[in-house]
Each structure stands twice: as C-alpha cells, then as structure tokens.
Nucleic acid binder design. Structure first.
Length: 461
RNA sequence: GGGAAAAUAGCUCAGUGGUAGAGCGGUUGCCUGUUAAGCAACAUGUCGGAGGUUCAAUCCCUUCUUUUCCCGCCA
C-alpha cells in the first residue's frame, strides 16, 4: 500500500490501487448506509472523498469522524460514482488520530468571517482560505530565493538584534535582559546599559540594509530575507509590527539598474505564483476577488510606469481632482495621491527623484542639490510595496548629510568606513514580503497573509 | 498618534426602556451515493466590563476594554 498526499493522489491517473491517506475531515454527509468524508491534508486546496459503507463502519464509530477530526483512511482508489470528483477512496479501514467535538470545534463547514478566524489563528490554517494563502506564501518565499540565486546573488544573514538605532526607519523594540522593575542606574540616574547583556543599548532590527550594504561591497550582489520589527503604533490593514522583508543590495548598480531589477523581480514572482499556485489562486479569485487573476496577469504584461516625483506633483496639481491634502513639491505623497497615480496610469508606478529632505540620509544626492535617487514602487491598493534608492557612496557627501540630519555618527562608524575604503556606486531596495503576498492573494488585510500577526495590542499565539 | 463605527446564541446578524429572535452550525430522528446534501423536531444566551439615570436598562448616559475602517508612520 502506498502512503501518499492528496495532491499527488488526485493527479494519479490509474485507479484500483490500495492507498493510505491521512488528513483532517472537512465534512461528512450521508445516511444510514453510506458516509462521504471530505478529507484534506493541506497538500492542496482540493479534498479527496472517502466513502465509508455502513457494513464496515458503525454509526457509533462514524460519529467521531466529524468536521475537524484527524483520521487515516486505507482503501482502494476507485473511479467515483458521483459527479463532483473523478476518484474517491473506498474505505476499508479508518483510524482516528484525534477527534474534534462538534459541539465545541469552532470551524464549521460554512464560511467564517476573516475577523473571527483571526481570533482562532491556531486553527485557521485548516480553512480553505488560509491553506491557500499559506501555500502561496511558501511558493513566493521559495521563488524569491530562486530568483536571486539564479542571478548570482548571495543570501546574507544580517543581525536581528542591532546596536545601531540610526537607521531611522521607525520606532524600535528594545532588547534587554534587565529586570524592568529594577534597572541598574548610572550616577546621573540614566539606565546603565553597560550592565545589560550586550553592554550597550540594543534593539530589534528595523532593516538589514546598512549591514546589507557591507555585504554588497564585498560579495557584489546580496539579498536579505528576514524578520523585521517596527514598534510604530500603526493601525492599518497594511502594517505589521513584525514582518518579513527582502532587501537586495547591489554593487555597481545605479538607480536605473535598481528599478530594472525591482520590476523584473516583481514580475517574476507574480508569474511564478500564477504558474505554481494555480488552484489556490483560482479559489481566491472565486471567493474573494473576481479581478484577482486579471490583475496579476496585467502586472506581468506591461512595463511599470516610471515618473519622477516632480512629474508626479505636476500630474496631481493639474489633474483637476480635488484632494483632501494639496500635492505640493517638498511634501510627501499622501495615500490619496498614490492611489490617483496608480489609477491614472492603470498599474504599478515607480516614482523617483524625491526631495532630499523627506528621505533617508544614505540616499544618493543628485547634482541639483535638491533631490535624491530614491524610488518607491506603488501598487494598486497596497501603495508602497517597495522602497529603495541608489546609496550615497561619497564619504564627504554622506558625512555632511549625517551631520545635517543630526544622526549620531559614533554608532555608524563602520558604515561610514565603507565609503573610505574602496567605495563604489551601489543601490538596493526593500520589499515588504507580506505586502507582496497581499497583492498576489487578493487578501485585503495584511493580518490574513501571515500565520500569526503581530500588531499593536495583539501578540496572541 | 488622530478620527469614525462596532461589540446580542458556537458563527453571521436582526431587535426592543418591561431580562430576546432569524439563518447557519449543533443535537435527535428520517432518507441505499452525497457534493457547503435534503426533510422534520429540539436546545441555544451573564445582550463586552464597570458605574450612572430610571419603578424597571441589552436598549439612554459616562467610562474602560477590544475589534474593524479611514488618516499618519512605512515595507
């Protein structure tokens, strides 16, 4: 007897062989003489139907084969007499690994709200929706590694605990072994971090970029793919306190190369998902967003629109649309502005050349003295899915910017040194992994594309 | 961090100043292969917590908690 997963079983052409399948019961229906068990093992969105004859299985036994129960079925794979499926298992033996009392098991056969499922995040992977989302998430993660590996990039593991707080990407979570009720103090009353585990103040990383640059200036092409932590009190469907980010960093790349790579990568990932997650995406398209597949295909088909920040402001000023906030050169683009730009161009838009005062210190300064070589990629509904830039490789210019923006340079000495020793043009960007999964799955809340979301006031599970 | 809405059965929601209802789910029964099966019957409950107004509060008021949405921060 062969022990197989359901995905493989549904693809086998032949019938007649004995098979063993283990999985979770999605539903059971039938009558006194026959029971039909929908079994899912997570390998695919599709279930296999197991048929239990009352001559072999008692009513009393089948009572425990209820929605949510985990069982192993052995029997013959046969052509189905019903119309809903090509093959089914004629059960000879059923072993119950674990029951799920129907009176208290929270998942029903019928649909649940996504809000409710968030409250039972320990069980929601057993639903069609989350099974699909988590499988797509996996394939995208794999595709990212494949994309970069195939291009000769090296995966660099940047630290999760960081001693630098100068990255400026957001509020940070402190890391300490202190007893918070009784922290050591210096003579002037401040917390004495010299007695803490690392002997200095440490935080969870908000970005691996600065360390990524160090790798790029040695290995040439690197990318990071790891957890990232932001202690911002962000209450939106697009923000997480703990999320995964992909940050490639490339030596000898300018802002144009950077855009080319980012666009190629996004298209590769969407195409990969369409090819490898067809069944799951079809399900999501049917259940949540009828335009999903069309939108995914449209992203692959045409080039992303590329405009400068200055052009974007011009478009927003002359479009005639009334905005709540006026678009004005020197100010950040509002959500409503981003939405307009994406709608106006009918797809992803890359905006470059932002005013230097609204961007980070490390971005390459343009000769105009006003703008930097930043790029944001704006996606429909999601907004900023990628943020990146060419980096300032000139030591004097970088140092000047660090001083202007009052960034403590003592903690960045190692970063600044790379511009003293064998500096070179380089560029990189950050892709929010969950925002990518959001776009590909058509989900609308980022809390539904990560197994156990961390958001303000929520760290359950 | 700013703003708005919401919290009633296991779930989705309706509802009323006199302590509550539907659909689904559940339980039981019927039906010889079903497809979110069908038919019938039954049971659902501190109406989010704490105060207050009132003869009486699930309903009105205050406050707290949580959730969702919009904005900001960003990926």
């Amino acid at each position: 007897m062969s022990k197989v997963r359901i995905k493989a079983l549904l693809q086998t052409a032949g019938t007649g062989q004995e098979v063993v399948v283990s999985g979770w019961v999605r539903s059971r229906r039938g009558n006194k003489t026959i029971s039909f068990i929908e079994l899912n093992d997570g390998s695919t969105i599709h279930n296999i139907q197991a048929v239990a004859d009352a001559n072999l299985f008692s009513d009393e036994f089948l009572k425990d084969v209820s929605t949510g129960a985990c069982i192993r079925v052995s029997g013959n794979l046969v052509a189905s007499q019903g119309s809903g499926q090509a093959v089914e298992i004629q059960a000879k033996e059923i072993h119950i690994y674990g029951t799920a009392d129907p009176q208290v098991y929270p998942l029903q056969k019928k649909g649940h709200s996504l809000e409710f499922l968030r409250e039972i995040a320990h069980l929601r992977p057993r639903t069609n929706t989350f099974g699909a989302v988590l499988r797509v998430r996996h394939h995208l993660a794999y595709a990212i590694h494949k994309f970069f590996n195939d291009k000769g990039f090296f995966n660099l593991h940047t630290p999760i605990i960081t001693g630098s707080d100068a990255e400026g990407a957001g509020e940070m979570f402190h890391v300490t072994t202190f007893d918070l009720k009784n922290t050591p103090r210096t003579e002037d009353g401040n917390i004495d971090y010299s007695q803490d585990f690392f002997g200095k103040e440490t935080n969870l990383t908000v970005s691996g970029q600065l360390e990524g640059e160090l790798g790029a200036l040695a290995l040439g092409l690197i990318y990071t793919f790891g957890p990232t932590f932001r202690a911002e009190n962000s209450n939106t469907p697009r923000h997480l306190a703990e999320f995964w980010m992909i940050e490639p960093e490339m030596a000898f790349h300018d802002i144009e190369d950077n855009m080319d790579l980012a666009e190629e990568m996004l298209k590769y990932l969407v195409a990969y998902a369409l090819e490898h997650c067809a069944a799951d995406l079809e399900f999501l398209n049917k259940m949540y967003d009828k335009e999903l597949l069309n939108r995914l295909r449209s992203v692959i088909d045409k080039p992303f629109t590329r405009i400068t920040y200055t052009e974007a402001i011009e478009i927003l000023k002359t479009c005639g649309k009334k905005f709540e906030y006026l678009a004005d050169w020197g100010k950040d683009l509002q959500k409503e502005h981003e939405n307009y730009l994406v709608e106006h161009h009918g797809g992803p838009v890359i905006v470059t050349g932002y005013p230097k005062d609204i961007k980070a210190f490390y971005m390459k300064q343009n000769d105009d003295g006003k703008t930097v070589r930043a790029m944001d990629i704006l996606f429909p509904w999601i907004g900023e899915i990628i943020g990146g830039s060419q980096r300032e490789e000139d030591h004097a210019k970088l140092l000047k910017r660090v001083e202007e923006m009052h960034i403590p340079q003592e903690s960045l000495w190692w970063y600044l040194e790379t511009r003293k020793f064998g500096t070179c043009p380089h560029a990189g960007f950050g892709l929010g992994f969950e925002r990518l999964v959001l776009f590909v799955t058509g989900m609308t809340n980022i809390r539904d594309v990560i197994p156990f979301p961390r958001t303000p006031k929520n760290a359950e599970f």
